[in-house]
Write a protein that binds this DNA or RNA. Structure first.
Length: 147
DNA sequence: GCCAACGTTGGC
DNA sequence: GCCAACGTTGGC
């Protein structure tokens, strides 16, 4: 799960304990959240558009998808008039803090490992803010890259 | 701040 | 349904 740390960082999540993952406005990312994220699932927390960008820790899904009501809020920057209460277009999950790594695993570092070369987030032009991670990649990262 | 790579919109 | 124009993301 990607987020710009100047918008919402892992330290904010530590402070809050639990947060709503609102504002995803991409259909593919929405589908991953809505259809595949289940309670108890662990996700990498990724700092994007950052110096450097990379995986900073872990969070856990604690509420499965429900309508992102910020889309109905005219005062929200995430407002989308095409989404309605009757027919919600956007969904979000809640996550809770799990772990912060002692040091960030940068995108550059992820790209240096052959074992991770087919991981979605290292692909050229990959912009999805929510994307699934294969078990083999999780295992490799947890075993070799987390300090 | 630049810009490549995407995604979306809307005219036709 | 095509595709040009535009908007956004996010690495660098």
């Amino acid at each position: 799960m990607k987020c710009e740390p100047n918008v919402y960082s892992i330290d904010d999540l530590i402070k809050d304990g639990v947060t709503q993952w609102e504002g995803v406005r991409n259909y593919q990312a929405r589908n991953f959240m809505r259809d595949r994220m289940k309670i108890g699932d662990i996700a990498f927390f990724y700092h994007s558009n950052s110096k450097p960008s990379g995986i900073i820790g872990l969070c856990e899904v604690c509420k499965e998808s429900y309508p992102d009501y910020f889309a109905w809020d005219e005062s929200s920057k995430y407002c989308d008039p095409k989404s309605s209460k009757e027919n919600p277009r956007w969904f979000m999950v809640d996550v809770k803090f799990k772990q912060k790594f002692r040091s960030l695993i940068s995108l550059k570092e992820l790209k240096e490992h052959e074992a991770l070369s087919d991981m979605m987030v290292v692909q050229k032009g990959s912009r999805l803010s929510i994307n699934p991670v294969e078990k083999k990649h999780v295992d490799y990262i947890m075993e070799n890259l987390v300090s």
